[in-house]
Amino acid sequence: MTESPPKPSRLSASTDWLRGYWRDHPKRSLETFGRQITMGIQAIAQLFGDLFRGKFPFGEFIKQCAFMANVSALPTLVVAIPLGVVISVQVGSLVGQLGATSFMGAAIGLGIIRQGAPLVTTLMISGAVGSAICADLGSRTIREEIDAMKVMGVDPMRRLVAPRLAAAMLVSVLLCGFVVFVGFLATYMFFIFAQSGTPGSFIGTFAAFAVANDLIVALLKSLIFGLLCAIIACDLGLNAKGGPGGVANAVNAAVVQSALLLFGMNVIITQIYNTLFPSQAV
């Protein structure tokens, strides 16, 4: 009689499971992160090199700016107005309970500029702009257009990635400024007509506490958000595999990764700014 092969021990089975888990999750995550860092450095170097040499494709840049603004402007407007109203209601209720209604303009305005605008920009950049970039490049990848460009001697980094990088940064800054304007206007109108506030107290307290650095930091945040979102979306789009289903998975991954990273960066930048430039009492 032939003896049956020995059954694997629990230790070897656990070891095999750990190896498979490491290969499928942490290892792939580290490889993706390293690939995105490498591509980001190359894309930034390519962008500034092309601008310095006068070889930057401004036609593609303008086309991408128009495309990104088209897919993100209306959703940004739709989100910015309710955000301003919600902040007015919540902050107004709290300030009213504390008996400091005269400082409502400062509280609401600074809330919009410092946190509201960057957070809305994060959602729009990751959800609208990032997904559009990833879907565009992913569809080109599965149609083998990227390989055809490389065969013809056209560098995809120069022709496709660098213009999208610059366009995403510019559109992000513009979106942040748009959210600041719309959100502040919405809170002002709601404070005046719905909460029976006085325009002078709203503008006066806001001007007393707000500084130019608040707006500069918000715009700087949006610039960094656009850069990071474009790098993630371009990387996942150029490495999409598996046909249309692979493009859908890449778009989903781009949105999730961008949102998580941008929210984390918002916290880090905010803490650094508050540490270096603490608020001064008036």
Rank of each mutant, 00 (worst) to 15 (best):
residue 5 P to E: 15
residue 5 P to S: 14
residue 6 P to H: 12
residue 13 A to K: 13
residue 16 D to Q: 14
residue 16 D to F: 07
residue 17 W to A: 15
residue 20 G to P: 04
residue 21 Y to T: 14
residue 26 P to E: 03
residue 26 P to H: 07
residue 29 S to L: 13
residue 29 S to Y: 14
residue 30 L to N: 07
residue 32 T to Q: 08
residue 33 F to H: 13
residue 33 F to T: 12
residue 39 M to Q: 15
residue 41 I to G: 12
residue 44 I to H: 08
residue 50 D to T: 08
residue 50 D to N: 09
residue 51 L to P: 05
residue 54 G to Q: 08
residue 59 G to N: 06
residue 60 E to V: 13
residue 60 E to I: 14
residue 61 F to T: 02
residue 61 F to P: 00
residue 68 M to I: 05
residue 70 N to Y: 10
residue 71 V to Y: 04
residue 76 T to A: 08
residue 77 L to G: 08
residue 77 L to V: 14
residue 81 I to R: 01
residue 84 G to I: 03
residue 86 V to D: 01
residue 88 S to E: 02
residue 90 Q to H: 05
residue 90 Q to T: 11
residue 92 G to D: 04
residue 95 V to L: 15
residue 98 L to G: 07
residue 102 S to K: 09
residue 102 S to I: 10
residue 105 G to M: 07
residue 108 I to N: 00
residue 113 I to K: 01
residue 114 R to S: 04
residue 118 P to G: 11
residue 118 P to V: 06
residue 124 M to G: 05
residue 126 S to P: 05
residue 128 A to G: 00
residue 131 S to G: 02
residue 132 A to G: 06
residue 133 I to F: 05
residue 133 I to E: 04
residue 136 D to S: 04
residue 138 G to K: 01
residue 141 T to N: 09
residue 142 I to D: 03
residue 150 K to V: 13
residue 159 R to L: 13
residue 160 L to Q: 05
residue 161 V to R: 11
residue 161 V to D: 11
residue 164 R to I: 04
residue 164 R to T: 06
residue 165 L to G: 03
residue 167 A to P: 05
residue 167 A to I: 05
residue 169 M to S: 10
residue 172 S to W: 03
residue 174 L to W: 09
residue 175 L to H: 01
residue 175 L to Q: 10
residue 176 C to A: 15
residue 176 C to D: 01
residue 176 C to L: 02
residue 177 G to D: 02
residue 180 V to L: 00
residue 183 G to I: 00
residue 187 T to N: 02
residue 189 M to R: 07
residue 189 M to K: 07
residue 193 F to H: 12
residue 194 A to F: 09
residue 194 A to N: 11
residue 197 G to A: 11
residue 198 T to N: 06
residue 198 T to M: 08
residue 202 F to T: 03
residue 205 T to N: 12
residue 207 A to H: 06
residue 208 A to V: 09
residue 208 A to E: 15
residue 209 F to D: 02
residue 211 V to P: 04
residue 212 A to E: 15
residue 212 A to W: 14
residue 214 D to K: 02
residue 214 D to H: 11
residue 215 L to T: 00
residue 216 I to Q: 11
residue 218 A to I: 06
residue 219 L to Y: 03
residue 219 L to D: 01
residue 222 S to W: 03
residue 223 L to G: 12
residue 227 L to F: 15
residue 229 C to Q: 06
residue 233 A to L: 03
residue 234 C to M: 09
residue 235 D to Y: 15
residue 238 L to V: 05
residue 239 N to W: 04
residue 239 N to T: 06
residue 239 N to C: 12
residue 245 G to K: 14
residue 252 N to H: 12
residue 255 V to G: 00
residue 259 A to H: 05
residue 263 F to R: 10
residue 265 M to E: 04
residue 270 T to Y: 09
residue 273 Y to H: 07
residue 279 S to F: 15
residue 280 Q to L: 15
residue 282 V to T: 14
